[in-house]
């Protein structure tokens, strides 16, 4: 019985594997690219234009055919055609001075915005997707989710009020509270505030803000300001940002004395046998993670003792309220503690 030459077989095999990889590699593979091309349909462009116009209204900037062309990265002629289409669908009317939306247009835009922000919240709370990718993925989903699916999603993640950037999510009936807060640059040294919004475009600036470690709900206190940079504390750690990035951070000023004294130790730093009291769970820990930690008893004021380290050092078992709970290092880092003796003894 003739046997296939092994070298020939291996070569054939490798060729097939390489071919499959070229086709199906995530994001860069042919199949992925073709899919992306097919998705950007006319309707998608139209909805993007609508969103741009709504954003202009909400933030008070005037829009024009040029701004639409710029935002969508298409030619002026195509932009003009889109604007005409929107007008024909009675979603906006041009009155010479700008491109204001009609009531129907505004409602449509709010629905898109709701889907977008709900999806970002879902990505932030329930998935491992990186923060810089949320916006892009939500951009895709807002065009494909049907209204019923959006409502199902909202129910699934607990009808959240804010997206992970700190922006309010329009309700199902299309309401949204007005934007509040001031840019970080408007605070004076010594003043504190709570972060309510991080602008996600342009992406590079957003990445800088993320790299600095900022997230919504953090308490910040300005230390000093120079034309080159602003120094401030956020949840106890000292950070720096350049003024451009700082303008993209919106805060709500807080009355004096509301910021907790940081920096805080976290639970992961406890050695076996040591005890501490829980101060808080880091504001950056939200959603299901936060619920679970609270339900397990890690509420402020609780005494925690590190008892056992596993054979591989991670996870560590902590004795909290007479129970041994094992947490991974990444989770223990979210729990801020106070190790001082008086806190422990009380």
């Amino acid at each position: 019985m003739s046997m296939v030459d092994p070298i020939l077989a291996l070569t054939a095999f490798t060729t097939v594997v390489v071919f499959v990889a070229i086709l199906f590699w995530p994001r860069h593979g042919l199949a992925s690219r073709i899919g992306r091309l097919l998705r950007i349909t006319e309707r998608v462009r139209m909805e993007d234009a609508l969103k741009h116009l709504f954003d202009g209204e909400y933030t008070g900037k005037t829009c024009s055919v040029e701004s639409v062309a710029g935002a969508l990265e298409i030619s002026r002629a195509r932009a003009a055609r889109l604007v005409n289409q929107l007008e024909a669908m009675e979603l906006m009317h041009s009155d010479g001075r700008g491109l204001p939306l009609t009531k129907a247009g505004r409602e449509y835009a709010l629905r898109l915005l709701r889907t977008h922000r709900l999806w970002e919240r879902y990505l932030a709370d329930r998935t491992n997707v990186k923060p810089a990718d949320w916006h892009e993925q939500a951009e895709r989903q807002e065009h494909t989710l049907a209204p019923a699916e959006t409502e199902a999603l909202a129910a699934r993640i607990g009808h959240p009020l804010y997206d992970p950037h700190g922006d309010p999510i329009p309700t199902a009936t299309g309401e949204m509270p007005p934007q509040s807060g001031v840019p970080l640059t408007a605070l004076t040294p010594g003043q504190s505030g709570a972060v309510v919004h991080l602008e996600d475009e342009p992406r590079e600036v957003f990445q800088k803000i993320l790299d600095a470690g900022l997230v919504p709900l953090m308490r910040v206190q300005v230390i000093d300001m120079t034309p080159e940079k602003i120094r401030f504390t956020a949840d106890g750690t000292t950070l720096e940002l350049d003024p451009v990035a700082a303008t993209n951070v919106t805060v709500v000023p807080l009355p004096q004395g509301e910021v907790g004294e940081g920096p805080f130790d976290n639970l992961a730093s406890l050695k076996s046998g040591e005890s501490a009291t829980v101060v808080q769970i880091a504001p950056t820990c939200q959603g299901l993670h936060r619920r679970r930690l609270l339900d397990l008893g890690f509420v402020p004021g609780t005494l925690v003792t590190a008892e056992l380290e596993g054979a591989l050092r991670d996870p560590v078992a902590y004795r909290v309220r007479s129970t041994l709970i094992a947490l991974r290092k990444q989770q223990a880092e979210w729990i801020h503690i106070d190790r001082s003796d008086q806190a422990v003894r009380s």
Partner: peptide, 16 residues
């Protein structure tokens, strides 16, 4: 890394 990418874990383990 591929088809089951995503939902983060809410790990916790009680040692009774």
């Amino acid at each position: 890394r591929t088809v089951l990418r995503g939902e983060a874990t809410t790990f916790s383990l009680e040692l009774p």
